[in-house]
Design a protein around this nucleic acid. Structure first.
Length: 631
DNA sequence: TTTAGGG
DNA sequence: CCCTAAA
């Protein structure tokens, strides 16, 4: 009967209905393990930890389907080449870890759609289907399917290796090895920022070296007096002129936002900062705000945060920037090094000199921002703000400059470093540098892809605090394909002065911590719209045909595992719209036209699985009733 | 976390 | 796409 049904519309690729969630739950952990975080990678590098973990998840129920006795299911199982079908769903991690695997990804097919060919039936489906009959044709097609989609057969890649290698090859900081070290070693010390713990897919490490879409930086960044660290006391004069004393120094790094991921990171950081804060002090009271003992720190933290939101400008703007806000505007600073002397303050002649110091430079990484066509000035502002905020959220490092030269040895005494207290203010300077490595993690892989120009080797070539840069093997797991289709029209670079500098923080800020409630900009950044390409739709349809409409996670894993920007919810939504699209007249459809053939398949699959669902319920209902009665 | 649906 | 109630 069911079988009959299938014959009716020519499907032979359906898999067994979803197993009860409970049964599948074990996969959860497994799934997570697939998502190797940057930390995992670190661990891997350091200790050669090879994530064997994934393999353990195994055990549990192979919610194999086999249990059910439905005829159609049996039929499916009969298919010589589909025996393992389900398991893959269940144990894909095993496959991952142990056996070579060939997974079926959008990315795999997009370019050379040949993968699809095997499965592509002619526009009129019914004719080539001989389900159950196990005719050569049928089995053949299902075989291919099984191989491609079900992760059996050829090895296509080793995720783990990919990841690890990418890790190995990841320079953290090209030109300033010491900094790199700091970055890692001291992560967590700089409670000003926080350490990002958010696991980021390995591909995150891929960063566009020379994205074409970057918006130049070159910010001029006034540092409010409130900016301080635990180690340095920056005494500024009145808040009026301080901006004049700030120098500018720019450096490059990458950063991109526009994905919700960021918001989450931000949010979490926010919390972490607080806790970190606590850790570094002896105060145990949970009420952060009332504890004087670390008020300073907290204060600094907060000030910093607030301050983060301030002057944001793009290079263009900066170039034309005049003394309106700063009397000592550095002229056309080189993109990399432009330190302007700034402050000179008489020191007290006491035993412990009190000297007024200023920030010599402040580095702001180059920002890489994705800007949708539909971007508004406001959204642009938010985006940049978020980018900058994000950078700063990672914390600041303080660099000490003596006679313009950087002193790296933290343990050296001032005198040893050639600093006399008398001339201290003349010789000493500080520079603030965002604490980098974390920001990288926030780059979503797809974004990287998006930014990565084709054919550009992913090695670090940039020189400055290249923090943001982690290279990644070109055979990145995250294929370019999934983002390519729509990349061209997704966004474009904007080199504008679209940003208006915000007034610098006032000295007041030193004492009054402005309660800054999380604003929208840092709360939720709507993801950019990424229309599904026809190829993606095809993959989706194919996956749903097999898996059904209630297993989005599986669909995701199986067919879109590589497309990090497609969540299972996205897929589900897309299916929803596909069904809708298929039902409306072609005239009413918008966007890239989906081939009618695909839409037909959508309707068929949808109908089929809807029916299955109904049956399932009918089948379950009575059983439950029985059991409950039996009890 | 996933699923299922409404917005 | 987002947001969320449910599971």
């Amino acid at each position: 009967m069911v079988l009959q049904k299938r014959l009716d519309y020519g499907f032979n690729g359906y898999e067994v209905p979803p197993t009860p969630r409970a049964t599948r739950s074990p996969r959860k952990s497994a799934f997570k393990k697939n998502q190797i975080s940057s930390f995992d990678l670190l661990a891997a590098v350091a200790g050669n930890l090879l994530l064997e973990s994934g393999g353990n998840s195994s055990s549990s129920s192979n919610n194999a389907i086999g249990d059910t006795n439905e005829e159609d299911q049996c039929a499916v199982k009969k298919e010589p080449h589909q025996p393992v079908v389900e398991e893959e769903t269940t144990n894909c991690d095993h496959i991952h870890d142990s056996i070579p695997e060939k997974r079926f990804f959008v990315s795999d097919i997009l370019p050379k759609a040949h993968a699809m060919e095997s499965f592509n039936r002619s526009p009129s489906p019914p004719k080539d289907f001989h389900f159950g009959s196990t005719s050569g044709l049928t089995s053949d097609s299902s075989e291919k399917l099984g191989a491609q989609e079900l992760g059996q057969g050829v090895c296509f890649r080793s995720e783990t290796n990919d990841k690890i290698s990418s890790m190995h090859g990841r320079p953290i900081n090209n030109c300033e090895p010491e900094l790199s070290r700091n970055v890692i070693a001291e992560e967590g010390k700089h409670h000003i920022g926080s350490s990002f713990k958010k696991p980021i897919p390995p591909s995150v490490n891929v960063i566009a070296e020379e994205g074409k879409h970057h918006i130049g930086s070159g910010f001029k960044k006034p540092i409010p007096p409130s900016v301080c660290s635990d180690d340095i006391d920056l005494l500024n004069g009145d808040g009026e002129n301080f901006s004049a004393r700030y120098a500018t120094k720019t450096f490059r790094s990458t950063l991109r936002i526009g994905d919700r991921r960021i918001k989450k990171v931000l949010a979490s950081n926010y919390c972490k900062v607080s806790s970190k804060q606590k850790e570094t002090t002896t105060v145990t009271n949970s009420d952060l705000d009332l504890k004087p003992s670390y008020y300073n720190k907290k204060h600094c933290l907060k000030s910093l945060r607030s301050e983060k939101r301030y002057p944001i400008k793009k290079r263009r703007y900066f170039d034309g920037y005049t003394a309106s806000q700063s009397e000592e505007t550095p002229r056309k600073a080189s993109a990399f090094q432009s330190t302007i002397a700034c402050q000179k303050q008489p020191a007290f002649q006491s035993r412990d000199s009190h000297v007024k110091l200023g920030i010599k430079s402040f580095k702001v990484p180059e920002l890489f921002i994705e800007i949708p066509k539909t971007a508004t000035i406001g959204s642009l502002k938010r985006t940049v703000l978020e980018a900058v905020t994000n950078i700063l959220e990672g914390g600041l490092r303080i660099g000490v400059l003596v006679h313009g030269k950087k002193v790296r040895d933290d343990n050296k005494m001032l005198l040893q470093s050639g600093i006399s207290l008398d001339t201290l203010s003349d010789t000493l300077g500080f520079c603030l540098e965002p604490n980098p490595p974390q920001s990288t993690k926030q780059l979503s892989p797809e974004d990287s892809d998006f930014l990565r120009p084709c054919n550009v080797p992913h090695t670090l070539t940039r020189c400055f605090p290249s923090q943001g840069k982690h290279d990644k093997p070109s055979n990145s797991v995250e294929s370019d394909l999934d983002s390519k289709p729509s990349a061209p029209n997704r966004a474009k670079p904007v080199y504008s002065r679209a940003l208006i500098p915000v007034a610098p923080l006032h000295a007041q800020a030193l004492n009054v911590v402005p309660p800054r409630k999380p604003k929208r900009s840092e709360v939720a950044q709507r993801r950019i719209r990424r229309p599904f390409s026809v190829a993606e739709v095809e993959v989706l349809v194919q996956a749903v045909e097999r898996l059904g409409t209630g297993r989005w996670r599986d669909v995701k894993l199986r067919a879109f595992d590589n497309a990090k920007h497609r969540t299972y919810v996205d897929l589900k939504d897309k299916w929803k719209t596909l069904v809708h699209t298929a039902r409306i007249s072609p005239q009413q459809r918008r966007g890239e036209p989906v081939p009618q053939e695909l839409l037909d398949r959508v309707l068929m699959a949808h109908a089929y699985w809807s029916q299955q669902q109904g049956k399932q319920q009918l089948l379950e209902g009575p059983q439950k009733l029985e059991t409950s009665l039996g009890l």
